Amino acid sequence: MATERQDFARKLRKHSTTPEDILWSLIRAHRLDGLKFRRQVPLLGYTVDFLCLQRKLIIELDGAQHDAERDYDAARTQEIERHGFTLIRFRNETILNDRDAVIAAIREAAGTSR
């Protein structure tokens, strides 16, 4: 039986944003250096945008709404990192306009830089 958090994650997957769709197309199905990413994953009481469990790497995409949520995002990041995860954030505009830089940053954070 699905939990409320799982239902919420499922809803987010069904209604993803354009930047989420673009990033997902770049990293899904082991496309990025063989890493397995999942999207909209319940973790530690939050729902994270993208998770690579084998590298304990989380990718978050931030739209305009995050400008008003900086304190919440900072506390959330600290909590997640306390559990040994690395969390990197990208603005939606970066995903839309500089995919090469996004992929390079993900590779660096995952330790698979080329």
Rank of each mutant, 00 (worst) to 15 (best):
M1L: 07
E93W: 06
L87K: 10
F50C: 04
A2M: 13
G84Q: 13
R107P: 01
R70W: 08
A64V: 11
I59H: 13
D71M: 05
T86A: 06
L96D: 10
G111S: 03
V48S: 07
D71H: 14
E93D: 11
S25W: 02
Q65K: 10
E20G: 03
L12F: 07
F8K: 12
I106T: 14
E81N: 05
P19R: 04
T112A: 07
D33A: 10
A9M: 12
A104W: 15
A75S: 15
K11Q: 12
Q6S: 12
R13G: 03
I22Q: 14
A2C: 12
I103C: 10
H83V: 01
H66T: 01
N97A: 06
D73L: 05
R13E: 14
K36G: 01
D62H: 07
A9I: 09
T47D: 12
D21C: 02
R39M: 00
Q54G: 11
A29P: 09
D73C: 04
R55E: 07
D21T: 04
E60R: 09
D73V: 05
I58T: 15
A9C: 14
E81D: 02
L96V: 11
R114T: 08
F37C: 05
E20V: 01
L44R: 10
Q40W: 00
V48I: 06
E60H: 07
Y72E: 15
A68D: 09
K11H: 12
L51P: 01
I22D: 15
D73M: 05
A74K: 14
